[in-house]
Design a binder for these strands. Structure first.
Lengths: 226, 226
DNA sequence: ACAAATGTTAATGCTTTGTTAAACCAAATT
DNA sequence: AATTTGGTTTAACAAAGCATTAACATTTGT
């Protein structure tokens, strides 16, 4: 399954070159021309990796990255920067698990970086599997949902759905996306099964009225924390 | 008692970020800027863990590690490497009980590694593989499981499974991981064999109701001590 | 008001796990 | 070389644990 990459780059020429190259390598690339558009698109799809140019009109790469992170999404982000930028800022992000690449760079270099990230994601290294959800704490690794009032161990499927929701907190996940990610496929019965799981999770989460899985009729679900 | 960590990293920015983060987590970190300085410092204090950057001026991480090994065979060493290095060399070290982490990495990942190491040191007896388990004491080197009420010598396989569980106490170990680690492979019958061993170990452990091997349906097992 | 989508609960049935015993195998012993 | 012995794997069957399906209620959009 080819990795989906969100590329946000304001220079049309460069953007096109990168997209084209990556596409040839078998990646599925979505190109946006500025930070705002980038955010909109990010909000609607699941990506395996983001590549953000740092200097962009409307919304720069760092701001965009911060907004993405607010979503609690764990996608790795690779920054493209014109030259040795403010090292501090870049290092900060690096410590956060992201990386950067300095223009001009060769496609080889870019592949190398992407490779590291994707290997890491699949190679179970990137497992920050703890999520705060209002009064809850969900440990995706041990399937434990804990709350001041008690602790519940979820089943595998429950945990998988929960994790997906947590990774995409405050954002509408399409039914299809969830089914694809957790069930691997999408038919009528799986859809109903998903509903059953949502129902179960809601039951577990009802201790804290501020945490809610809301339905978007005909679209999907969103995990909200007030 | 906070663990003492020796960090040798030539990049000042990265070194600082790591040190700062670890310090916040309650570790006592000593930062050195190159291999030579690192060795001097190592020579004067006892550390619970070393983190060495591989590529450094004056003395690289591997060389430093070899010198350290000559002195003190047991400190775990975590290598930090710029990119997919010569895998062979890294794997060699890994077999020696050390580990490595590839840049860029998140602090979460780093904690996870450190955690594994320090947990391994657990019963403050890293040399003879001793683990405390409630009322039990398991000596992984001599396969002896002792309890106030008596002592039992485990067989090879029993001990291997037991040890793996002990090293990963309070964590869910996937069936696949156990099979890979103990049997080296993973087929249906090995899986059943694992179940048989779990059953045996449970029998041995039932003297202390606070020690329990719990099953995670469809996933694996976890050793819990209440 | 109607059809489609979602919520909820319960039953059904498949898969995984628990346990015991027999088969198997290799090393040690006679 | 045969036999005993200790340990691991296979087999067989019982018991749990879960996801799915079904069935029915409720909500939403048109």
């Amino acid at each position: 399954m080819s990795a989906k990459i969100l590329l946000v780059e304001d220079d049309p020429a460069l953007g096109y070159v990168i997209k084209d190259n990556l596409a040839h390598k078998g990646f599925e690339v979505t190109l946006c021309k500025d930070g705002e558009q980038g955010y909109e698109v990010f909000d609607q799809q699941l990506f395996d990796l983001c590549i953000f140019d740092v200097m962009m009109p409307k919304k720069d790469g760092f701001t965009l990255a911060q907004e993405v992170r607010k979503r609690n999404s764990q996608v790795p982000i690779l920054f493209v920067t014109a030259k040795a930028m403010i090292e501090d800022k870049l290092e900060g992000f690096r410590a956060g698990g992201d990386d950067y690449i300095v223009k001009p760079f060769s496609m080889e270099e870019l592949y190398a970086r992407i490779d590291v990230f994707l290997r890491r994601t699949n190679g179970h290294l990137r497992e920050n599997n703890s999520f705060e959800l209002g009064e809850f704490l969900f440990d995706g690794k041990n399937f434990k949902l804990s709350h001041p009032s008690g602790e519940k161990t979820l089943t595998q499927k429950e945990a998988e759905v929960m994790k997906l929701l947590c990774c995409n907190k405050e954002r509408v996940l399409k039914r299809e996306e969830i089914l694809k990610a957790v069930w691997g496929d999408d038919d009528y019965f799986m859809g109903r099964s998903l509903d059953v799981f949502i129902s179960k999770l809601r039951k577990y989460l009802k201790e804290d009225p501020n945490v809610e899985i809301v339905n978007y009729h005909g679209v999907g679900f969103k995990l909200e924390v007030k």
